[in-house]
């Protein structure tokens, strides 16, 4: 019998999350992920443009029924994600520590904030209409009501530095109102996103509502920005790359996508996000209804 410390390492190759399943990249490519000190941690799938295309198809398919759920139900599901994250807390702490090089205490705090942010956004599901919608006074015998509706399929370039809190802060506001998302995770720090995908798969989120691609935003984003069946794109993940941002904005103009512009530097994710991340991906519909006499 061999001594107890001779166990062979289980070397992991993580996969993508598309349409509720975990496929390998269509290209077959993967890349090595290192921790903050440069030590090998695991392999992650390197998403190709065809994975992005498949993800858009999955997101489109899921969108109508996700938007058709009651706001109350979407809130429940977002809250459920927070619950499952709480159960997996040690794994998230470790992943965040590894990828962002934080101390254990700081990593704990980041995970806390990420979970709290989900709960916070979950609460907005059935309240956002009251805040940004309106009953407009008009000069005639009509009810004139403005209500927000989801934009549709949203491509999200997740922040490169804040791999968990930043990710949750850009995904939750998109899906809470009934949009579906195709998310490109941080390139160098994809592992919290991979664990987040595993949480999504086990927390009542319908397949296709969130699709997570690990890989290079610079490679995949131009295809998403030009894709005629994507309704909006969040460029947060390419903060500080104005040339690429301009290129993507030009490509996005072809089908009049909504664009949430790239900031000059990655924002401080611990601050109160406000409602802008939600309202950026809403359309206001106004209906006129005659008042009965």
């Amino acid at each position: 019998m061999s001594p107890t410390n001779s166990r062979v390492d289980v070397r992991k190759t993580y996969k993508l999350y598309i349409g509720g399943a975990f496929p390998r990249s269509e290209s077959g490519h993967s890349y090595e992920v290192a921790d903050s000190l440069g030590k090998f941690v695991a392999n992650a799938a390197l998403a190709s443009r065809k994975d992005a295309r498949d993800a858009v198809v999955a997101a489109r398919k899921a969108q109508a029924s996700w938007a058709g759920r009651t706001a109350y139900n979407r809130a429940q599901i977002l809250y459920r994600i927070a619950e499952v994250m709480e159960d997996r807390r040690p794994q998230f702490v470790q992943a965040t520590q590894q990828s962002e090089g934080l101390t254990a205490a700081k990593a704990e705090k980041v995970v806390d904030e990420a979970i709290d942010r989900l709960v916070w956004y979950a609460g907005w599901a059935d309240k956002i209409t009251q805040v940004v919608g309106n009953a407009n006074p008009v000069a005639g015998p009509f009810f004139n009501l403005s209500t927000p509706e989801p934009t549709g399929v949203v491509a999200v370039l997740a922040p490169q530095r804040s791999s968990l809190l930043g990710l949750v802060s850009v995904v939750a506001p998109v899906i809470v109102t009934g949009n579906t998302a195709v998310v490109v995770s941080s390139y160098e720090r994809p592992l919290p996103a991979v664990t987040f995908a595993e949480v999504l798969a086990t927390s009542d989120v319908p397949g296709g509502v969130v699709n997570l691609l690990t890989g290079s935003a610079a490679t995949i984003a131009p295809w998403l920005a030009a894709h005629m069946d994507v309704n909006a794109i969040d460029l947060t993940g390419i903060a500080g790359e104005p040339a690429l941002a301009t290129e993507l904005e030009v490509a996005a103009a072809d089908n009049l996508k909504r664009v949430r512009r790239a900031p000059a530097v990655e924002p401080d994710w611990t601050l109160d996000p406000g409602l802008e991340p939600i309202t950026a991906f809403l359309e206001i519909k106004t209906v006129w209804h005659p008042i009965g006499i």
Partner: peptide, 9 residues
Amino acid sequence: TGRYSGPDY
């Protein structure tokens, strides 16, 4: 066109 199309069109 070099870009993905959608069923809307």
